[in-house]
Design a binder for these strands. Structure first.
Lengths: 245, 245
DNA sequence: GACGGTCTGTGTACAGCGTATCAGCCGTGG
DNA sequence: CCACGGCTGATACGCTGTACACAGACCGTC
């Protein structure tokens, strides 16, 4: 995301979000290009080759239009990424009312993880303003927490705590995946050996005896699903315990 | 971080990490440029103006050397960022043995948050391989968890859960800050009004009644410290509860 | 004290990026 | 029929990361 701070003084307080702008006039029956089509193409590229592969030129090629064409719909690359993020969140099916906050939050966490893992670049784009479909997530969570007697602040903390955990965990998972791509390790085995040799050197310094023991004793180092769910259970137990709900 | 996937096939499995390389010969008493000086200058720029302001040319200007000079010490920008991350983690003072895992983990979480907030760009650079000073964090955590009867896998889950939460939470905090810079909002008040107007439009769609109520009822929306600590208490309670420790 | 080799920093160059700007084209109102 | 005004495409600029060839400084050796 190289563009994050570029357009600083381009728009100031009378900034109008993409969403608001797109909603307004419906100026003509757009045919070739639509925000949705743009977002879809960009997401496809990002999924396949990473966020850095998404360039305005590449996107244009993918869509079969001129390099600058997409600028008719977004003011810059930042907004393109907003569109992409929203597109991704749109595909998440949020859990409905189950009558049990814990079940709902559990499902929600798993769903978020699925989506973020499927589009691993999203975790790198969290700096953008909330998009409509992104806002639907806390909406669903707050609905699930309604009626438990929590005040508004506390309910939001519950939501934040769960999503913070999910985002942090997925970020760590994704970090490894991305490292593979950076290093050009394609096969899983190649990656393991490459990372292992590097780690071996670090451990050989003797600075990390506990970590070394972990490497030696651990049996579920690669069971990311188990790790995630175990941590999630802790988080949910903690919320239940701490808030007496 | 535009360079993340560029140097794919440059080095393959016989990749040697910066750390290993720097340790090896001790070739001469470096004078003008050292990895530490490079990292320090880069971190200063990133702290002041964001990660995107850190360019090889800018860094060179800052150090008073030619644009390509730093390439003598790092193979590319990715390694520069590794150096920067390690530099930051080096300044974290890790909690010593307290005899109480919960106290130690609590302190650790707060310390990590402090450091990450002080260098808010770090959360965007988590994809890199573990650096020595980064590895010192799980080392300290595992040491604190030793002797509780947890198996290696579970101990690591405890550590991961806490840091996942911390990273996720800080990431969310930082996201807001960064949005300000992107939008060119300098003052806090200006930011609030700008964000509020955008949010107002989203809420006016009526899609988010629960969220709207939260906005109306919440009193501690800006007390990030309280939110963080409350969530952290939940997480720690949950670990204690779930694992019976 | 002179010398050759290694290490350190410099200069130039290139491909690719985001995007400002302008020229041309189109459908439409007169 | 023409003039016009908004959409589209191409060109251009300044910036990026970095490959590459080079010059100077320091070293151990003779």
């Amino acid at each position: 995301m190289p563009s994050q701070e570029r357009q600083a003084q381009a728009h100031d307080k009378d900034h109008v979000s993409v969403w608001e702008r797109l909603e307004r006039p419906a100026p003509a029956p757009r045919t070739t290009l639509t925000p949705r089509r743009i977002a879809k193409a960009a997401v496809a590229v990002a999924d396949a080759e990473g966020l850095d592969a998404v360039t305005m030129r590449r996107l244009a090629t993918e869509l079969g239009v001129a390099p600058m064409a997409a600028y008719r719909y977004v003011t810059g690359k930042d907004e393109l990424i907003e569109l992409m993020v929203d597109f991704v969140y749109a595909e998440m099916d949020l859990p409905g009312e189950t009558g049990n906050w814990r079940t709902t939050m559990h499902t929600l966490a798993l769903r978020i993880r699925e989506v973020l893992l499927r589009h691993s670049w999203v975790t790198r784009a969290t700096w953008c303003a909330p998009t409509p479909n992104q806002l639907a997530v806390p909406e669903a969570a707050l609905a699930a927490l309604d009626g438990l007697g929590l005040d508004a602040d506390t309910a939001m903390v519950v939501y934040s705590t769960v999503t913070s955990y999910v985002h942090g965990a997925v970020n760590a998972e994704v970090g490894v995946t991305q490292l593979l791509r950076v290093r050009g390790w394609s096969s899983r085995e190649e990656a393991r050996s490459g990372l292992a040799s590097q780690m071996a050197w670090l451990l050989s310094t003797g600075r990390f005896p506990m970590y070394e023991r972990y490497i030696g004793e651990a049996g579920r180092k690669d069971d990311l699903q188990w790790q995630f769910e175990t941590g999630l259970e802790c988080v949910l137990d903690g919320i239940s315990e701490h808030l007496k709900i």
